Simulated assay, not measured.
Amino acid sequence: MPENVKSKKDTFRERFSKRYPDINMEDEESYYGAGNDLLDKYDGYEESAEKMRERISNSPIFAEMIVAAGKQDDFDPIVWMVQNKGLDLKAIAEDEQYAQKLADAHSSYLEKLAKQDEIEKQMSENMPASIETVRAKATEMGLTDEQTEEVIGKLYAVMDDLIVGKIDPSMFEMMAKGMNYDTAVTQAKEEGIAQGLNTKVNDTLRDISGKQERNGGRQSPVAPVKTKRKPRIPFVDEDEEGME
């Protein structure tokens, strides 16, 4: 290969870095994560294109319209239908059944428009307060502004994916772990407490055993100097009695 010709690997890495300038290509998790995102998008485009091809193949008129639209910047489908397919707008208006279909379609459009307006209204009211609480939580967690923006961007990406029916397994895993977080912490604390108590008991038993000085053979232990009566320790005293 000539020196001035780039290898396919170098060409790919150069194109990849232009598309994802913030990705550290030496970090495999980030690198392959971005690569998977790119493949997911490609799969989505491929699926949409396949559906479009099926619809075009089932409707010759639609296929002609798509071709015509690709050749004209100010393409108007109604004008095209009148010019090329003899669409009779007067006959459509006089057809009661078809006119009802158009009226229903227009009503559906108005309903969608009203819902969209309501959603936009709620968004404008809720977003400022939401951003404020999120930034407060980010400060509490010690996140930088860049990290905060990255997380918010991920949230928007998840929302966009859900709209088109996509669920990222890594986001699912994160949500599942988050939902079990309190339980996991409680369990860890309980295990830690149990382990600590067990260690303390074992240390106490070893300490007690070390203080029990005995003579050689099976003789009884040397009587200690009389002090206050030591409280009886369950299990330990029984074991010592069995050893005498």
Score class of each variant (00 low, 15 high):
L39W: 13
K41P: 02
F62Y: 12
E28V: 00
S57N: 15
M174C: 05
G142T: 01
A105R: 10
Q147V: 01
Y42A: 12
A188F: 05
E3H: 11
Y32A: 10
T204Y: 10
E149T: 06
D203T: 09
G165D: 10
D207C: 14
Y32W: 11
P231A: 11
A176Q: 13
N84R: 03
S48E: 11
D104I: 10
K18L: 04
R214V: 01
D43M: 07
A69L: 02
D40G: 10
G44S: 13
M179D: 15
R19V: 07
T183R: 13
E54P: 05
E26T: 00
S7G: 15
F12T: 10
P234E: 14
G70N: 06
K9T: 10
L110Y: 08
I92M: 09
K115Q: 14
E244N: 02
L113E: 15
E241P: 00
R53P: 01
K85H: 12
Q195D: 03
E173L: 13
D145S: 04
N24H: 00
L113A: 11
D145A: 02
E150A: 12
I233K: 15
V164M: 12
I56E: 11
S59I: 04
I233R: 14
E149P: 01
L162R: 13
D22L: 08
G210I: 02
E146H: 00
K230I: 09
L87K: 07
Q122L: 13
Y98I: 09
M175Q: 07
D43R: 10
T144M: 02
I78A: 05
K112E: 06
P128R: 14
A188E: 10
N180R: 12
R19H: 08
M141S: 00
I233P: 06
L87I: 03
E120A: 07
K211T: 02
E190M: 15
D10E: 15
D74Y: 05
S59M: 12
A184T: 14
T199Y: 02
G35S: 11
T11I: 14
K226W: 01
A176H: 06
A176I: 03
M159I: 04
L102M: 08
R232L: 11
G192S: 08
T186I: 08
G86K: 04
V164G: 09
Q187P: 00
E94T: 00
K226E: 05
L143H: 04
M123E: 11
D239V: 07
Q100C: 04
T11F: 08
A99W: 05
I56Q: 13
L113N: 12
V82Q: 14
